[in-house]
């Protein structure tokens, strides 16, 4: 483990932390433009976080220690997840500790904690949200894992670094199985990050909420951490998407000269992906909650189909 690798890891840790709200701001801004609004500006998420951190926290009478600790756990999990995905360079010292299966495990850990926290207060909305979140999760998690498995079988490894190296540095090869995986992945991304066809991040209707219903009881610094964690999660998912489907231009191990170009390219990819997400959200309408299992089931089956196609076409 070289000093430069550790520096790179720290750099990525700090960068994702700072960039996550900006990405959210960019998506919101794109959405505003697409809907013929001016929008609040790309820096609005930072202002929101700052405001929330300064407020007094209000806790329900019934809240237990679990409820108070969960935002921190959530934040740490998402930070770790976002910092692990190799998007800038392929030698991150932390990556060997967590492979793709463990990465999905971390997402699951965060989901279980936030769902438990939502049930902690004992209001109707909290448990409603928890139940729906777990409903989305139990189909989204396998779908995500299947997408990652498709990439894993191509590169014969579940290590994120090896996957990205194989996909980015091998001679240009089109993988039919990755088409299926990509479609499934976009569906999972929408569902897991509470985006429009599945959930609405800016809703104010308690009865239709999923993610927002779970965090209804959080306020001030706790809410700030939860929101920041959501932004990190979105960034992590986009990073996974970039690492799997468009990894070209990533800096190789020890190649410092390629780093500025890699950062610029990554920024460009993220902006593009954010705009794409805003576009999808603008053209689609939120679906009924019981259409969601169907939607996620489709994603899951597509991902399985991708894996199957790989076994059949590419071996």
């Amino acid at each position: 483990m070289s000093a430069s690798a550790i520096f790179l890891q720290l750099l990525q840790n700090v960068l994702v932390l700072l960039a996550a709200p900006l990405l959210l701001g960019w998506i919101n801004q794109c959405r505003a433009w697409l809907q013929n609004r001016n929008g609040a500006g790309m820096l609005q998420p930072y202002r929101n976080l700052l405001k929330l951190f300064h407020k007094d926290a209000v806790l329900a009478h019934n809240a237990s220690q679990l409820f108070r600790t969960t935002p921190y756990i959530l934040f740490a999990c998402m930070w770790l997840a976002a910092a692990l995905v190799p998007v800038l360079a392929t030698d991150l010292p932390l990556s060997p500790a967590v492979d793709v299966i463990a990465l999905v495990g971390i997402f699951a850990l965060a989901r279980v904690f936030i769902s438990l926290a939502a049930m902690d207060i004992g209001t109707a909305f909290g448990s409603l949200g928890a139940r729906r979140e777990m409903l989305v999760g139990f189909l989204a998690e396998p779908a995500l894992l299947m997408v990652l498995f498709t990439a894993s079988t191509i590169s014969q490894s579940t290590s994120l670094i090896t996957i990205v190296e194989t996909l980015a540095h091998k001679q240009f090869v089109l993988y039919p199985s990755m088409t299926f995986a990509a479609v499934a992945f976009v569906m999972v991304l929408l569902a897991e990050n509470a985006r429009v066809p599945v959930d609405n991040p800016s809703t104010h209707l308690e009865l239709t909420m999923i993610h927002e219903a779970m965090v209804l009881e959080y306020s001030a610094r706790h809410l700030a951490l939860v929101e920041w964690a959501s932004a990190l999660k979105l960034l992590a998912y986009m990073a996974i998407g970039i690492a799997l489907f468009i990894p070209y231009g990533i800096a190789e191990a020890g190649n410092w000269n390629a780093l500025p170009a890699a950062i610029a390219l990554l920024t460009f990819k993220l902006l593009l992906a954010g705009a794409g997400l805003a576009f999808i959200e603008t053209i689609s309408a939120k679906m009924r909650i019981f259409r969601v299992p169907e939607f996620m089931g489709t994603a899951f089956l597509l991902a399985v189909l991708g894996l199957l196609t790989h076994f059949l076409l590419e071996t």
């Binding site: 001679q171 240009f172 090869v173 089109l174 039919p176 088409t179 479609v183 597509l302 196609t309």
Partner: peptide, 27 residues
């Protein structure tokens, strides 16, 4: 992988056709 680029494009088209077949099935 020793498949030439044209072969890859054809494989890709095949995968897309299958994808569309599934999309039609669920549309």
């Amino acid at each position: 992988m020793g498949i030439p680029i044209t072969g890859q494009i054809i494989n890709m088209c095949a995968a897309l056709l299958l994808l569309i077949a599934f999309a039609m099935l669920s549309q």
